[in-house]
């Protein structure tokens, strides 16, 4: 399970295990999906920040070398998808085997999503995720929770903004840190802009925008991918922007030795084998 050379160097600082109770927000758009980034967060968390790559001079002294248990919860995709995706990116990682070792757990909130009674959906899913956390707690490893597209619950009118953010807070309270993946297409966030003030937005527009912005306020940093302004290109898949979220200011004694995460705006290219390159604007990636 070699992941060396598979993680672009520019991304490494962001994949380190973040501080306690922190939230990282990944945003996706229809034309540029963040699916290439999510598995890299999962793999980095499972393997630990060291990655077995001891030449990495960027690692902070005292950085958490040991890996964490990842609980992957998806509202958008099933286990078969993730199995293929993880194998492709790591060149041969078997998801079933990793699950058997207890380093990864998958909670499928996707398959039965539409069959659930609306009033029960959230509590049923919460109890399943909580069970998975409780099971993983015994192993003594830190737990990283990856939530993929819980915003779909708003679109399906199964919950409201504030119920969903309370749901997230309850889950985040039980784990070390959380990675949240959401869609940030323009129609989903446009309701939060001042130009839309006083306009009647549909409930889904308004609720999704409120949820997403609220999570960005709570996030330590936000990684967003989007299409190039000039459209699709052969040698550029999209633009990656990393910004500090609203929780970047939580001054804690423990965080003093953690380097500040730098802002970044870079281009990326996903190759046919799933390999990703991240490079500065204006530089060639070869």
């Amino acid at each position: 399970m070699s992941t060396r050379n598979r993680t672009p160097a520019a991304l490494k600082p962001y994949l380190r295990l973040p501080s306690e109770t922190s939230l990282i927000l990944l945003t996706s758009t229809l034309s540029c999906t963040v699916n290439w980034l999510t598995p890299r967060f999962i793999i980095a968390a499972i393997n630990g920040s060291g990655h077995g790559d001891h030449t990495d001079t960027q690692s902070v002294p005292g950085a958490r070398e040991e890996g964490s248990t990842v609980i992957l919860t998806s509202w958008m995709r099933n286990q078969a998808y993730w199995k293929t995706e993880l194998r492709r990116i790591t060149a041969g990682m078997d998801m079933d085997k990793v699950i058997a070792t207890g380093k990864l757990a998958f909670v499928d909130c996707f398959t039965n999503l539409t069959q659930l009674a609306p009033e029960k959906a959230l509590s049923e899913q919460e109890s399943r995720i909580t069970q998975a956390i409780a099971k993983a707690n015994g192993a003594g490893r830190r737990i990283v929770l990856v939530l993929e597209n819980p915003d779909i619950l708003i679109a399906l009118a199964l919950t409201t903004t504030y119920d969903l953010s309370d749901f997230l807070l309850r889950l985040r309270n039980q784990v070390h840190s959380t990675v949240l993946v959401c869609n940030a297409d323009l129609p989903l966030v446009a309701a939060a802009t001042t130009s839309q003030e006083g306009m009647q937005n549909t409930p889904i527009e308004a609720e999704t925008a409120a949820f997403l912005v609220q999570q960005a306020h709570a996030a330590q940093y936000v990684l967003g991918v989007r299409e190039l302004e000039t459209g699709a290109a052969k040698d550029v898949s999209g633009v990656l922007r990393v910004t500090r979220g609203g929780a970047a200011y939580s001054w804690d004694d423990e965080e003093d030795d953690v380097e500040e995460v730098k802002e970044l705006e870079a281009l990326y290219l996903i190759q046919r084998d799933g390999n990703a390159k991240v490079f500065e604007r204006g530089t060639s990636m070869i």
Partner: peptide
């Protein structure tokens, strides 16, 4: 940030400077 109206952009660069 959001006001830019660019798809996929939540925050402008330079926000939340320490």
């Amino acid at each position: 940030g959001l006001e830019e109206g660019t798809e996929g952009v939540l925050q402008g660069l330079g926000a939340n400077g320490k």
